[in-house]
Amino acid sequence: MRLSGIRRGKKKLTDGMTLADRLLLAALVIISVSGLIFIKEAFPQGTDVRIEVNGKLAYKLPLNNNAIIAVKGIDGDTVVEIKNRKVRITESPCPNKICIHNGWIDRGAIACLPNRVTVFVDSSEGKENKAIDAITG
């Protein structure tokens, strides 16, 4: 196994591949790539958005439906936007606007403490996460 030997072998790299090798390679690539795409589509209902005001559940929405809702907090309306399976707070009456600077999230939570509005992204298993239609006040 000298270096010259390796160089000699390199010229015909694909020579050692049989037809079955190529077919197997193609099949594996197709299966895994389509699997990567399919798996993301297969579990979109796994997560939903839970909005709490003052520690009480105000809204529960699916993460895969785009929506803009105004949540009544103690100081005014906090506007929550759901788009492309992500959530953000776009408007809030709070002084620091920390919640707005948090930007888009797809897991965890954003809290607007002055207005007592907290947005959670939950991953709930089973059928409990049937969408409750939000009615903005």
Binding site: G16, M17, T18, A20, D21, L24, L25, L28
Partner: peptide, 14 residues
């Protein structure tokens, strides 16, 4: 089982 069907690349993939 299939000594001639797969080369080293195919075997490595398996």
């Amino acid at each position: 089982l299939f000594p001639r069907l797969f080369g080293p690349v195919g075997l490595s993939l398996i």
